[in-house]
Amino acid sequence: MSSQQPDRFEEIIRNAGESWLIDSFASRDQALSHLRKRLTEVQACAASRGGSAPASRIDEHVLIATYTTNRERVRAFLQALGTVSTPEMLLMVWRIQEGWAIASASMEYVQEQNFQLCVQLAWPDRNLGPEDYKSNDIDDAALLRHLGILKIDDKPVLDGFYALSLQKH
């Protein structure tokens, strides 16, 4: 595709207000290629995990289709695509957005030695899960700032994955 022709994937990124995903690269083609490669990695991760629950399908066509009905969901995922490092954690983000609940999460960090983020997802109403997601890449700590923070009967709950409000100046 010519570098002058917009494509649908680029359109939703820009319409969602997430142009930084493209413009922070030296070239637009390079940026889109990188984002598509990352989506391919997430899809491969989804397909390889197995388990009893149906695998998620996540590619640019799914994002484009979802954008028409759930713009904010796609916007949040795109933000993660630009910051979260590992395909496994990006898959976890998509699973949460599909409706999976965060059953547990733990983070271990020792300065200049160790980082580990472990998250377990489940969907009790559908008898799905648990599914475990782990990362040792500290870039993945960025996803924590997107989680919904709740108190149900004064008890702690993390649920949902939400877009940050971005403003360009």
């Binding site: 923070i149 709740l150 108190k151 940050l164 409000s165 403003q167 360009k168 100046h169």
Partner: peptide, 20 residues
């Protein structure tokens, strides 16, 4: 619970992006 959740920082802080 709903009130607590939607008043969370994530929904009420605007992050400013520098020109890319």
């Amino acid at each position: 619970s709903i009130r607590h959740a939607v008043r969370g920082d994530i929904f009420n802080i605007v992050i400013s992006l520098r020109d890319a």
